[in-house]
Amino acid sequence: MKRKKEFIGRLIGEMTNYLLESDPLMLVVSLHHEQDGAHISFFDDRIRTDKELKKINDALNPKNSRPELAGYYGSMAGNSMSWSGRLDLIGWQIKGASVKNSSTGIHIDLWLGSDEFMPEQFTINQNKK
């Protein structure tokens, strides 16, 4: 539990660091926790361009898995709010992310969990249906 708490805290820290750089008036972080995984949503009130969305999406969904970077260098995520947020540190450590504009601003979903964890079977999604 201690490790999970630290891990989620670091991810939220780095993600909010990144989002706060665009100086939003509203920022909502929502966490849903289940046995095999977790879902963290971020909403703000800043609409991003398609180019910005692609850049964020590419950083959060790296082409290759990078275990050698995820654990060791990934521990820097959420460590400092003084410098620009680095989304690749998050991307190496999560299962996947979806990035889109909602009616008010950006909406980012981070999915994390073990190999057994499938976002499509997540109860939050089922509830939505």
Partner: peptide, 10 residues
């Protein structure tokens, strides 16, 4: 309980 790959650089 981590893969050796995740510690390979260390």
């Amino acid at each position: 309980n981590q893969s050796f790959g995740s510690f390979s650089i260390i």
